[in-house]
Design a protein around this nucleic acid. Structure first.
Lengths: 262, 262
DNA sequence: CGCTTACTTGACATTCTTCAACCGCAGTGG
DNA sequence: CCACTGCGGTTGAAGAATGTCAAGTAAGCG
């Protein structure tokens, strides 16, 4: 695992003019959770104006280190993960475009897990003070961030159910359903198709399966005609059956305050 | 699963004079997280003055229902759990004396999981408004509650590592280590011994193991001389080895603000 | 072209589950 | 007092799910 080359943009990082490439995932996500004013949106746009490009498999925050600033993912897949003494990696959560890491970092002396990229990512580093100010001056943003933490908790609970009591194929189906909905919410997925920049090892470290077993589970899903997966693109071929297999119900991802926009 | 007999104390509930039986676990826990004033402590004592006794295996909040009020556990074991369509139960988190459920409930339309007791419990029902007031008027309590949520998150992550990548015996060892520390923090455990009012089925539903396998794992731990467990009392016979087996490091449970008391 | 990384496949071992039976104890009712 | 019952725990045997090891293939890249 590489580690992040200090604070400045990596040498191969292009200009910062990329931030209008597509609907801003952070704003889009928070708008779904609370009603934001034009000033709120402007503040969010300002905060995330200078993205940095980070290569895949790069640590943004190493395990056990203090967290110097928050990170906002604009593009790509990142994750929180732990490495066990024997070397095994457990991926705890995925961070997708629009997801924020380190909101509560000032309260935590050292991060109990690492934050790293799984694909090449576009990331914004946000100093704690900036985030603090944002929250103090924009109560609706504070509310949206709070709600987003509650959704994260629900996702974690759902993953616990998967790891604790679902079979390999059910876990995989559930993960795909969840990723599809989460990516759709920030316009990074079509109805039944999205880019999945993960290796089979990544999937295994997420779902508690060996890479070999992941491979066989994927083949099983393909053979049943539920998905297609090749070239880092996942296609859901039979959503009803996939969701049934996963016992998937998207409601846990759709927490919204009564005032929230679409 | 029984369900809670409405809002009033159960018929067999004794007097409320019981709340001085032992160091108040809620106050004790929050004091560990932030520096509380005498007024803070008095307010906490007032809020939790009227406990209710609840029998084992009783639902306080059913899955999918709105949460009408918060619940504070004073004695006994409770848990958040989910029942899967096929009937399988996954226990998500334990609530021990001093633990609070429903802090964010006003923001969540319906609880995605149930809250139920695993043993007979002593519980306080706290209306949302009372909790809100407590938080508004006592910033240090608000801080402590926030930190306590962060610890809960760390516990959840730790459980995810267990279910995702540890063997049955490692999971069990880790759970015992964690429970010992958490109970010690609220004076419900001696150095190496504590009451464990759980059945082997409960343990299995927590750790993602069948009851039969739980039984064998327990025998293995006993055979290795690491624990004794009988009559609902768990004794840790060889802590270093048990912690090594579990890869246990208590630091994730010891988050504290710089100003916190011991 | 050779190297690396990801994926694939087969054979085998291990972990864990399922099913079924049995034990022991506590509560309950006759 | 005793039979009955139910729950929690224990045991054995068989099988399913998953891991490990090892080898081989395919695609991307310098």
């Amino acid at each position: 695992m590489k580690s992040l080359p200090s604070s400045n943009p990596a040498p191969w990082s292009p200009s910062a003019a990329h931030n209008e490439s597509s609907p801003h995932p952070f704003i889009r996500k928070l708008q779904r959770l609370a009603l934001l004013s034009a000033a709120d949106i402007a503040a969010l746009a300002r905060v995330s104006a200078t993205p940095v490009f980070v290569g895949q498999n790069t640590d943004l925050v190493p395990e056990g280190q203090p967290v110097e600033c928050a990170f906002l993912i604009l593009e790509g897949f990142a994750c929180r993960y732990r490495i066990r003494p024997g070397g095994a990696r457990q991926i705890l959560t995925y961070l997708l475009p629009g997801d924020l890491f380190g909101l509560d970092a000032p309260l935590v002396p050292r991060s109990p897990h690492a934050l790293g990229t799984l694909s090449a990512c576009q990331v914004v580093r946000i100093p704690h003070e900036v985030l603090l100010l944002l929250i103090e001056q924009h109560p609706q943003i504070a509310l949206a961030l709070h709600l987003s933490k509650l959704v994260e908790e629900a996702v974690l609970h759902e993953r616990l159910v998967s790891l604790g009591s679902r079979s390999g194929i059910e876990r995989m189906a559930h993960l795909f359903c969840e990723l599809n909905v989460r990516l759709q919410m920030v316009s990074r997925a079509a109805a039944d198709q999205f880019g999945l920049p993960l290796t089979q090892v990544d999937l295994g470290d997420t779902l508690g399966l060996s890479n070999v077993h992941v491979n066989r589970v994927l083949q099983d899903l393909r053979r049943q005609g539920l998905i297609a997966l090749s070239g880092r693109v996942l296609t859901i071929l039979n959503r009803p059956q996939l969701e049934a297999l996963a016992e998937f119900n998207a409601s846990y991802l759709h927490l919204a305050s009564p005032t929230a926009g679409g």
